[in-house]
Deep mutational scan, measured.
Amino acid sequence: DSWHDTVDGIELELHGADEELLKLAKELLKRGVSEEEVRRIIEELLK
């Protein structure tokens, strides 16, 4: 799946992010949310 590559990229960027955020990112990508949107959501949550 192409979203796996996206998640791997996000995981590299979010090496400090907790497991729950990564699960959320994967779930959003699986549901068709764009990579940009996922990054934006996670950045908001990390604030």
Rank of each mutant, 00 (worst) to 15 (best):
E44C: 12
K47L: 12
L29V: 07
R40S: 08
T6M: 12
S34W: 03
E43M: 14
H4Y: 09
R39V: 08
K23F: 06
G16T: 14
V38R: 01
R31T: 12
E20P: 06
L21C: 06
L28S: 01
K23E: 11
L29A: 04
D5M: 01
L28Y: 02
V33W: 09
K26L: 09
E35T: 14
L14E: 06
I42V: 09
A25I: 14
E19H: 05
G32W: 01
E43L: 13
E13Q: 04
V38D: 00
R31N: 14
K26H: 08
L46G: 05
A25M: 09
A17C: 03
E13G: 04
R31Q: 13
I41W: 06
H4P: 14
L45W: 08
H4W: 11
E20Q: 07
V38S: 01
K30I: 11
R31L: 09
L22D: 08
H15G: 15
D8E: 12
E19M: 03
V38G: 01
V33T: 08
H15E: 10
L24Y: 07
K47G: 07
R40D: 03
I42S: 00
D1L: 01
R31H: 09
L21F: 06
A25L: 12
L14Y: 06
I41E: 01
L21S: 04
V33N: 05
E27W: 01
K30N: 15
D1G: 09
R39N: 04
E11D: 12
L28K: 00
D5N: 04
E27K: 04
A17W: 10
L24W: 05
L14N: 11
K26V: 09
T6D: 09
D18V: 11
E20N: 08
L21E: 02
E35D: 06
D8G: 13
G32E: 02
D5L: 01
K47W: 03
E37S: 07
L24M: 10
E19N: 06
E36W: 04
K30R: 08
I10E: 07
D18Y: 12
L14H: 07
L12G: 11
E37D: 12
G32S: 02
L24E: 02
E11H: 15
R39I: 11
S2P: 11
L28W: 01
L12E: 06
E35C: 07
V38Y: 02
L21D: 02
E11L: 13
E19Y: 04
S2A: 10
W3S: 15
W3H: 15
R31W: 04
L29W: 00
E20S: 07
G16D: 09
D5Q: 03
E27H: 04
D18R: 05
L12K: 13
L29Q: 04
G9T: 15
I42M: 06
L29M: 10
I42N: 00
T6K: 08
E20A: 08
L14V: 13
A17M: 11
E13M: 01
I10M: 15
G32Y: 01
E27C: 06
A25Q: 03
E27F: 00
G32Q: 02
I41D: 00
H15S: 14
E19C: 05
V33K: 05
S34C: 08
A17Y: 08
G9L: 15
L45K: 07
A17R: 05
R31K: 15
L46W: 05
E44P: 04
H15Y: 02
E13D: 07
I42Y: 02
E20C: 02
E35P: 13
T6V: 13
L24H: 09
T6N: 13
E36H: 15
E19I: 04
E43W: 04
E20F: 11
L14A: 08
L29D: 01
D1I: 07
K47F: 04
L14K: 10
G16A: 06
E43G: 14
G9W: 15
I42W: 02
L22W: 03
L12F: 04
L12H: 11
K23D: 07
E13L: 03
L45N: 03
L21K: 03
D5I: 02
R39A: 06
V7A: 11
L28D: 00
H15M: 10
E37W: 03
L45G: 03
K30P: 01
L12W: 02
L28I: 03
G9A: 09
E37Q: 10
R31F: 06
L21A: 05
T6W: 12
L46Q: 08
V38C: 02
L21I: 13
D18F: 11
D5K: 01
L12M: 11
G16Y: 13
R31A: 11
E20V: 07
K30C: 01
L28T: 00
H4V: 10
I41F: 13
L45I: 12
R39F: 05
E13V: 02
L14C: 05
S2W: 12
R40G: 05
S34E: 08
L46H: 08
S34K: 13
V38T: 04
V33F: 14
D8C: 09
A17E: 06
L22F: 03
E44Q: 13
D8W: 00
E43N: 12
R39D: 02
G32F: 02
G9K: 12
L22I: 11
V38F: 03
K23Q: 09
K47N: 09
H4R: 05
L28P: 00
D1C: 03
E36Y: 03
E13N: 03
G16W: 09
H4I: 10
E36V: 14
K23L: 09
W3R: 04
H4S: 08
E27Q: 06
D8H: 15
S34A: 12
E19L: 05
E20D: 12
V7L: 09
V7R: 08
L46T: 07
L29C: 01
A25N: 00
L29K: 04
V38I: 09
W3Y: 12
R40L: 10
D8T: 12
K30Q: 14
D18I: 10
A17S: 09
K26S: 09
L46D: 02
L46K: 07
D18E: 10
D8K: 09
E20W: 11
I10F: 15
E19D: 15
D5S: 04
G16S: 07
L14T: 08
K47Q: 10
A25K: 03
E11V: 07
G32L: 02
T6A: 10
D18C: 03
T6Y: 08
I42E: 00
H15W: 06
G32T: 01
E13F: 00
E43C: 03
E13C: 03
L46M: 14
I10A: 13
K23N: 10
E20R: 03
S2L: 09
I10G: 12
E35G: 15
V38K: 01
A25G: 03
E19F: 03
K47H: 13
R40K: 10
E37V: 11
S2D: 11
E19G: 04
V33Q: 03
